[in-house]
Amino acid sequence: MKYIALLRGINVGGNRKVEMKKLRTLFESLGYTEVSTYINSGNIIFESEDDTKTVLTKITKSFEKIFDFEIPTLVKTEKEMKKIANAIPEGWQNDATQKTDVAYLFPEADSKKIIEELPLKKEFLEIRYMKGAIIWNIKRENLNKSQLTKLISHKLYKGMTIRNVNTARFLAGEKE
């Protein structure tokens, strides 16, 4: 089965550095095949015969042995990633006028209620929940008005890992 591992909070602002080559080697040492990484923000695509829970356990335990910091990790099947990517309206893009992101949700944050709990001014953006993710689109001119930048200081922020729409579509198997 094809999986995508989404690592949260690595290689951001020069902190918690993890080399993609090291990740590929680590995943191959766990017996995973067709291992590749996408950009430097912790996206690993690979294949395994193991079920999702076993894959996550193996990855988490290996990270604990190798890195001196925690790496929260989500493991999604290709099918789950496609379902999320397919929920993004085609017109939602990242360009000069708009910004679209996908926040993949860890189990503790995965609830329809999450949208109500986030400190966002929803009149300035479109936001949608689906199992496993929330997706938003905002006109760039409304970015500050929406208070989207305040998201990183909210308690629920630790329960998500965010990718831009281009990355989300690529990881789901759609080519850019």
Rank of each mutant, 00 (worst) to 15 (best):
I45K: 10
I45D: 06
L7N: 06
E80K: 01
L118R: 02
S36Y: 09
R8Y: 10
F124R: 05
A172K: 02
E34S: 11
T97F: 12
R169N: 11
P89M: 06
R8D: 08
E117A: 09
S48L: 08
K131N: 11
A85M: 04
K2P: 09
A103Q: 05
K155V: 03
F46H: 11
D101W: 09
K76M: 15
N166S: 05
I59Y: 06
K158H: 03
V18I: 12
V165K: 03
E70R: 12
A109M: 06
T33Y: 00
T167C: 03
T52S: 10
I66D: 04
F170S: 02
R169S: 07
N15R: 15
I162G: 12
M160D: 04
T100Y: 05
K158N: 10
E49Q: 15
E174S: 05
T73I: 06
P119H: 03
L105E: 01
L120R: 02
I115M: 07
L7E: 08
E28L: 07
T149C: 00
F170C: 03
K131S: 11
A172T: 05
M20Q: 09
N166A: 04
V55G: 01
K79H: 09
N40H: 14
F63R: 08
A96H: 13
K112Q: 13
I134A: 03
G173K: 02
L171N: 02
A85N: 03
R140M: 09
E28W: 02
Y104S: 04
A96K: 15
E141M: 05
I84P: 05
S48Y: 10
P107D: 05
E47L: 07
I66R: 12
S41G: 11
L143H: 09
K21T: 15
N11E: 06
K82E: 08
L156W: 13
N11V: 11
M81I: 08
I152V: 14
T97L: 15
G9M: 12
N166K: 12
K99T: 14
F124P: 03
K175G: 02
N86L: 10
V102F: 01
S153R: 10
A168M: 05
E34V: 00
F170D: 01
S146T: 02
F27T: 15
K61E: 15
V102P: 00
D95I: 00
K65A: 07
D101S: 15
